[in-house]
Design a protein around this nucleic acid. Structure first.
Lengths: 112, 112
DNA sequence: TATAGCGCTTTCCTAAAGGAAAGTGAAATA
DNA sequence: TATTTCACTTTCCTTTAGGAAAGCGCTATA
């Protein structure tokens, strides 16, 4: 019989997950917010990420208006990735995940 | 040259993502924390989830000690899924995602 | 006896994620 | 002139996620 409705929470959580899903989006946002602007710098700041994946995820994040791709017309042309103001709204999520991750690792180590 | 290190944040965030990854884990935790205990109730409380996926994710969540599977020896046998205390530590993450998701939906609607 | 409910499992399938390695074109540097 | 850097792209491949549909063993109910 009747189940308890949890849609008020489940729906918005799913909306958020859809934007920041996958292994790489939050790490990339964190890197860009930390101040990494160049493709290569972002890549080197995130262990294990490949250029193919990075390029694809940067495009996704641009579409969601979390970062912007800036072409600087020096010679030679420079490409910079900068956080949009909207990226700041992700800070509570990032902090919550960071805190949980730190605690979780501590918990795992205590056990084994 | 040198990139800025963001590993202090990226690493724990990735640890957290590894546990709650995918489309369904948080919705299931939310449903169980809301009070849904039976397999069928959980399934009905989360639109779109199939029994195969639910069964698999419930096993994952049990392994991470976020929920427990309780066999009640009535006749007939009842199977209940209950949140472990550790699930409560996910509340800040869930709340952050919920808040962001609500705001994001508002933002999208304003635009179009 | 037939049907329904519960908690799944099984099979089959597609799509998306992700990784490895190499390459590319333009410009800078040695 | 040769090499390196930058910002990618391309190809190929494997893995994982996830969905659709059916079925299964058990019990309860009509």
């Amino acid at each position: 019989m009747g189940y308890l409705s949890c849609l008020d929470t489940v729906k918005p959580v799913r909306d958020a997950i859809e934007v920041i899903n996958g292994k790489w989006k939050l790490p990339i946002i964190i890197s860009v917010m930390t101040g990494n602007e160049r493709f290569t710098d972002i890549q080197e700041s995130i262990p294990g990420i490949t250029p193919k994946v990075l390029a694809k995820e940067l495009k996704d994040l641009e579409q969601h208006q979390l970062i912007k791709r800036v072409v600087v017309d020096d010679y030679p042309v420079k490409i910079l990735y900068k956080p949009e103001p909207y990226a700041d709204t992700l800070t509570p999520i990032i902090e919550a995940l960071k805190g949980w991750g730190l605690n979780h690792r501590k918990k795992i180590f205590e056990k084994e």
